[in-house]
Amino acid sequence: MDFAFFLIQLLNGLQYGLLLFLVASGLTLVFGIMGIINLAHGSFYMVGAYLAWSLSSLTGSLAAAILLAIPLTVILGMALERLLFRHLYQRDHLYQVLLTYGLILVFEELRSIIWGDDVHGVVVPALLNASIPLTDNLSYPVYRLAISGVCLLLAAGLYFLIQKTRLGMMIRAGASNRDMVQSLGIDIKLIYTLVFALGIALAAFAGMINAPLSSVFPNMGSQVLIICFVVVVIGGIGSVKGAMAASLMIGLGETFGQVLMPDFAGMIVYVLMAIVLVWRPEGLFGRA
């Protein structure tokens, strides 16, 4: 591998890492900060992708589709929190696992009924549909770079929201002692509803903007679910910074793993996770 290709692989790794952060960001919020185990995270990702596909074929524009779809997913998130999740906060995590596993099946079946079982493509917006030539036979799609930009913005926004705002402070306080926060006169129920809905919307948003790259197909959610949990666990539960570090680590590890040790590429992520957990059981940036 000469130096130019090394740099390109570095870029691939960073870009893939940012993409992972995007996909895992909703889970970081819901699992990492609210402490809800949401196995249906991948399903919301899938719902977002299918919404992007069906709405963009209706309106003819991905941007319009995303603008339309985000309010829909926020409403979906709020409704699910009110009707289902709210009743499980005080219970054992196993109840959440059971509920969200059930949701996976429900969403998968609904997807089959509403949208069918075919593979669909989403067109890259014309404005971003270009490639930058890197070598004589390789170029880099502009849309991928644009996604990386969105990921960085999102990461900064999430970090700011949780660490620097009053709302973020209440969320963190609520996560560590719900009753105390409530008795201080804060409407913790409302905050939880909002944050949960935001988490769902983030998962769906990731599906939407990733749809032109990944295509839209059945079971696409289960593909991202595991890697999302790995990101949150390596990064340290409750840490946006950690999730970002873990995403980049996995992105680079996978990219160079596939090139340098192709036979073990499938294991690399889990080896990384095992090493990190032995060294720091609470994750890279987690609180012990």
């Binding site: 390109i8 692989q9 390789l138 090139v259």
Partner: peptide, 23 residues
């Protein structure tokens, strides 16, 4: 060269770069 992507992953960028360098 035989290039393998872990199943069922769909991130091909690293191996596409590899193909470009092998020509």
């Amino acid at each position: 060269k035989e290039l393998y992507v872990p199943f069922p992953q769909v991130e091909f960028q690293a191996l596409l770069t590899e193909i470009a360098s092998i020509k």
